[in-house]
Design a protein around this nucleic acid. Structure first.
Lengths: 161, 161
DNA sequence: GCTGGTTGCCTGCTCGAACAAGTATTCAAG
DNA sequence: CTTGAATACTTGTTCGAGCAGGCAACCAGC
């Protein structure tokens, strides 16, 4: 999972030294990723790959660049991810007939067998994460994470720009 | 749909497919890591290394295995992290006088110059993350992430065990 | 002593993330 | 048509994460 992404590292220090919120964010991200990886292992996919597959299943053949934008990923990472999926037989590549630069990626018929298992993974993960939550708490969690995301995104673009 | 490659349009993120909470957790984790990396870059350290340094600064020379346990990391990862820190001149290794297997890691005097900058990074990160939050919202965020963490931890140990 | 098990560390591998550099194709302006 | 920029993709590198295998040192038991 980790939509390719949240792959941060482990390593969590004394909460006091790095701040309670940093500590919590790091830990939740890591555990979430870890659990998703566990659930994913049976399908033969690695974190990041399942999002590519879900997109191909749902929206049909795509260019690499479309997958990149969608998953907020990196061109280099996508090249390798697709290469591994191709090696595993989950995906096929063919040149675009209309753009000599582009490559079209499509899910293989064989990959359809995984679809149910992969798609069922997410609801299960959410359920495990919010075990014991009321509906209000769940909504509050989503809103709160949304605020954090917005702040972080702003800080990052300000840093970069 | 979009069976051909003229499928450029605005692609929808698989947020709906993977669940809003998974989506938010993944995104926040990723952005948090990304921002931490940006803030860290100036110090010359990479994510993960700063936690090792903070520990050494605070608690003095340590065996690798102690660092591993404290940071909840992996022996292989630690070996390589320490090697890079040593190459960078941040850390020194010497054999333990009492245990022929062990290696003692200690921060170099030169590394002390980074200490202030590295330690100031975490409060800044927290402040950026919770920009515009009230004190109640901040506390709620920490509590909420704590609940998520607990649930995830439970699910993981149940999976593994 | 000797043995068997544990511990500390290293190295091999595959994986994703990010950055940089390079190639090929497309497209728009002159 | 020619130039030059933007686009699509590839490859190389360095980084961390995680797992499996292996070696040397330690510590029980006998």
């Amino acid at each position: 999972m980790c939509a390719q992404d949240e792959c941060h590292g482990p390593m969590t220090l004394p909460a006091g030294a790095i701040g309670p919120l940093n500590h919590a964010v790091i830990r939740v991200g890591r555990l979430h990723h870890q659990l998703a990886t566990q659930l994913l292992r049976r399908t033969g996919l690695f974190p990041g790959q399942e999002l590519v597959m879900m997109h191909l299943w749902e929206h049909g053949p795509q260019r690499q660049v479309d997958l990149i934008r969608l998953l907020d990923s990196d061109a280099a990472t996508m090249t390798r991810t697709v290469a591994r999926l191709e090696r595993g037989g989950f995906v096929r590549r063919r040149p675009s007939p209309t753009d000599g630069r582009a490559v079209i990626i499509e899910a293989t018929p064989a990959s359809q067998a995984l679809r149910g298992e992969v798609e069922g993974l997410w609801p299960r993960l959410e359920q495990l994460s919010t075990d014991g939550f009321t509906e209000e708490q769940r909504a509050a969690a989503i809103a709160l994470l949304g605020s954090l995301e917005q702040n972080l995104r702003k800080a990052i673009t300000e840093q970069a720009g």
